[in-house]
């Protein structure tokens, strides 16, 4: 096994083009679990921790560019709390302080798990994923980026470099159901916003992220609509019926918070 540690984005993209089989690693909170439990032996790891261009976030003409290396802790405690409140709430529910200090938004997208907590709040805010390679850069709407359970549209020579989002400033919230208030993979999660229209997206209730929208006047039927849009499964964490029910209840509660 090799570990490659580029210092610049250009070098990282070149290395990814040369080593297409390499696993990128940022916070390592998913990758190290796989390595420690021998769930994979990549020929090569591409350590992105030293690439300054992937860190933090910048503002450009009203839009935000969240670097793929932005951590949950940075979203939770920093300036983003006010502009992306649902993402900040979601970040607060991830793992533990240790996990939030290392785990990144880019890593959550890379994993593309239906339980990824960053996904629903970003989808509700219309986020786009910036994918880059030596061939160039493209932006893919988040709903199209994830194509299935732990699958996405990244090409073998591409890296996730950022997430673009233009904050709606709409009242919004995030909720998550699990057996305890920390260290919980969502049984089901939900992000809801109420701007010009109602928007919702959920986690752990469909193979890929789904956006549900409705006119504000249809708030009464919105919980039902959200539950109907889900395609949950029965597993150890919860049943299909429970998940649908929980989504209905969470949507009702979320609407009470955001319809002000």
């Amino acid at each position: 096994m090799d570990v490659l540690t580029p210092r610049t984005l250009a070098e990282a993209l070149r290395l990814k083009a040369e080593h297409r089989e390499a696993w990128p690693i940022q916070g390592g909170t998913d990758v190290l679990v796989a390595l420690n439990f021998d769930r994979g032996r990549p020929a090569c790891l591409l350590n992105l921790n030293e690439v300054a261009e992937l860190r933090g976030f910048t503002r450009q003409d009203g839009a935000l560019r969240l670097g793929s290396g932005l951590t949950y802790a940075e979203v939770e405690h920093g300036l983003l709390r006010d502009v992306l409140p649902a993402l900040a709430e979601a970040s607060r529910t991830v793992g533990s302080p240790q996990i939030r200090n290392r785990g990144t938004i880019g890593g959550n997208l890379g994993t593309s798990s239906p339980a990824g907590d960053a996904l629903p709040p970003l989808l509700v805010e219309g986020a786009e994923v910036e994918c880059a390679s030596v061939r160039g850069t493209r932006r893919v709407p988040l709903g199209e980026f994830v194509t299935g359970v732990k699958r996405n549209v990244l090409e073998p020579d591409e890296l996730i470099t950022a997430v673009w989002v233009t904050p709606s400033r709409a009242p919004q919230t995030f909720m998550k159901v699990g057996p305890r208030n920390a260290m919980v993979i969502a049984v089901v999660s939900l992000a809801v916003s109420a701007g010009d229209e109602l928007r919702a997206s959920f986690g752990s209730a469909s193979p890929r992220p789904v956006l549900v929208t409705a006119p504000r006047e249809e708030a009464d039927s919105f919980p039902e609509r959200v539950a109907a849009a889900a395609a949950p499964i029965d597993d150890v964490r919860g049943s299909e019926r429970y998940r649908r029910h929980a989504l209905r209840v969470l949507t009702e509660r979320a609407l009470k918070r955001v319809l002000v």
């Binding site: 390592g28 909170t29 190290l32 200090n101």
Partner: peptide, 14 residues
């Protein structure tokens, strides 16, 4: 920064 050492690649601490 507080981290779980089991989830950091030794090479990342270089």
């Amino acid at each position: 920064t507080l981290v779980c050492a089991c989830l950091v690649l030794a090479a990342q601490a270089d």
